[in-house]
Design a protein around this nucleic acid. Structure first.
Lengths: 151, 151
DNA sequence: GACACCAAACTACCTGACGTAGTAGATGCT
DNA sequence: AGCATCTACTACGTCAGGTAGTTTGGTGTC
């Protein structure tokens, strides 16, 4: 479990997570500092050590995991983007009492696009069909088709 | 419109908003620094000027509005708790691509309590009944009775 | 009118997080 | 041994937030 807040990421931290997330399929073993630096640091004119420090801090915050690979570390995201987002949503809503939460949700939906609302409905339906399926013979683990494939 | 990010509040800022929110009905005119200090500053051992500074900053960030009352200012929340929460939710989800967002929502729902899910469904229903009502007059009865209970 | 009081304005300091990076030490390869 | 590369440690600037002191100006009072 996270040992430190790990809420709102900084800009570079966010960029690092994006980089790690977007390459987890291609590099399940994780990425080294060098690779991350090449991917996002060079174009920003950042020093190698900057990425090293940032990744080190992120590991301490349990935003990423790391594993030795020879003399280097390989970093992997500790959570998926979806998980982290979900966490953030819960965090935001968690401080509210039930009735206020209802009101906040209403506001939220009120300012959502039809697409977003459809996504939400789809997720709700998915959840329901899953729990319905669980009564007969569950197939856990398998995430929905949408999953992680990013643009 | 907000001139500054106004996302994530600090602890004291949050406490101040809570205080303002929880007393808007009793004090629609808003509260003075003195009152806020008495309400939440004294028990924390904070100086009067601390609350003054914090409220001043919050006004500059458009988190609160203020209005003269004799020589003092009266502070009122610039948004309801629900609005600010909704804003935060949008902000969190706004950075995601459609498919990732769906996945995030699914995760979110997955870790939500049945009550929370019911609240969400109620909000969705409320939204729908409202737009239906706009068309020709369905029965908007929907939610109100549901989860709210506590103070 | 002088004075005390109070609120506001201004200024300052500390701390923690983040972005940034240099230097030193360890390790492995040739 | 020499060199490259990686990690560890340290440091610094900046910004936001929490904290509070000092100064200024208005108001009521005697």
């Amino acid at each position: 479990m996270p040992s430190t807040p790990r809420n709102r990421l900084g800009d570079l931290e966010r960029a690092v997570m994006d980089e790690l997330w977007s390459t987890t399929e291609a590099h399940p073993e994780g990425r080294t500092v060098r690779e991350v630096h090449d991917a996002i640091g060079v174009q920003r004119g950042l020093a190698y050590t900057t990425l090293m420090t940032v990744l080190d801090r992120m590991a301490k915050k349990d935003l990423v995991n790391r594993e030795r690979d020879g003399r280097a570390w390989r970093y992997t995201p500790a959570s998926t983007r979806a998980e982290l987002t979900s966490e953030s949503l819960h965090h935001t809503l968690g401080e509210l009492a039930g009735d206020t939460r209802r009101s906040a949700l209403l506001h939220f939906l009120d300012e959502s696009t039809p697409e977003e609302i459809d996504e939400l409905k789809a997720a709700l339906a998915e959840l329901e069909s899953r729990s319905a399926g669980a009564r007969g013979g569950a197939s856990p683990g398998a995430s929905p088709g949408a999953g992680s494939g990013r643009a």
